[in-house]
């Protein structure tokens, strides 16, 4: 790297130091100290009690399920869009998927409340058809729906961007060698798209694990997730030490999950290289 490049990079290094490294250091300092400012492991000890473990497991579970649903819904969509021959149509479809994201995240979540409520659109419709009303809002299902709805584009885009770059000749060659379309997909297209899938999973799982707005709005505050716990500790209880410890634990889990995913990604790539 020459000198000019290094100078150009300085603002970014400063940016990262101030806005990424420093906050994490502060988080560490808070989580390993107590009210009097002395070193203490008390915060971590109190986190590993059944009540908080349950909150953590519940968050991981909901985030996992919503990631799986996003993948099941998102992959076919990305695949179908990538297979559209006309670039114009393709871009229109992509635009349609990104369009809701131009609206504020909170507004989108609020609008689900209007749809799912006791006097909401769906229940009013059911009533008009003299069908029994459903309790749609304020349960885990509603939280899951909110997560899938908000994070689905983060699954579709990375997969799409990989699929669109895969050389069509691979599939043609596989066909020439006698593979049927299903085999071609399972042995060629899908393995080649794994990097996109990994990025998609990471981009859905991370915000899903840490979200606190969706459970408090659509879950009616009845499903406390790790994000809500952190928010409550910092904003209501004023226990920054415990809140920081909880954040640190959440970050560690996300980091571990990402490492596992990366390793998986690397083995896949190695396999593909061998294949090539």
């Amino acid at each position: 790297m020459n000198k000019n490049m290094r100078v150009l990079g300085l603002p970014y290094v400063a940016w990262m130091l101030i806005f990424i490294c420093l906050p994490i250091v502060l988080l560490g300092v808070y989580s390993f100290t107590n009210n009097t400012g002395n070193f203490s492991l008390e915060n971590f000890k109190s986190f590993f009690t059944p009540i908080y473990i349950q909150i953590l497991l519940n968050s991981l579970y909901l985030a996992f399920i919503s990631t799986v649903i996003c993948f099941i819904l998102g992959y076919p969509v990305a695949y179908i869009i990538a297979k559209i021959p006309s670039e114009k149509t393709r871009n229109t479809f992509l635009l349609l998927f990104i369009l809701p994201m131009w609206m504020n995240f909170l507004l989108r979540t609020y609008s689900w409340m209007t749809l799912l409520g006791n006097n909401g659109l769906i229940n009013t419709l059911l009533q008009a058809l003299s069908l029994p009303q459903l309790n749609l809002l304020y349960n885990s299902g509603a939280v899951l729906l909110g997560m899938v709805y908000n994070f689905l584009p983060f699954m579709i885009y990375p997969i799409y961007s990989i699929l669109i770059k895969i050389d069509a000749n691979y599939a043609i060659a596989a066909g020439d060698l006698g593979a049927n379309p299903r085999q071609t997909f399972m042995k060629i297209t899908f393995p080649l798209s794994i990097p996109g899938v990994i990025t998609g999973i990471t981009m859905v799982f991370m915000p899903a694990v840490s979200t606190f707005v969706i459970p408090s709005l659509l879950g009616g505050g009845q499903n406390m997730l790790i994000g809500n716990l952190i928010e409550q500790q910092l904003m209501q209880a004023g226990n920054w030490h415990f809140g920081s410890a909880a954040s640190l634990i959440m970050m560690t889990i996300i980091l571990i999950a990402m490492q596992v995913m990366n390793r998986f990604d690397k083995t896949q790539q190695k396999n593909m290289e061998m294949l090539a």
């Binding site: 349950q54 519940n58 406390m224 809500n228 716990l229 409550q232 500790q233 209880a237 226990n239």
Partner: peptide
């Protein structure tokens, strides 16, 4: 400082299944 006990209880209530 007793507010911590209130916060603790409120967390437990909201996390209760």
């Amino acid at each position: 400082q007793f507010i911590a006990s209130y916060a603790d209880i409120w967390t437990k209530v909201k996390a209760a299944q």
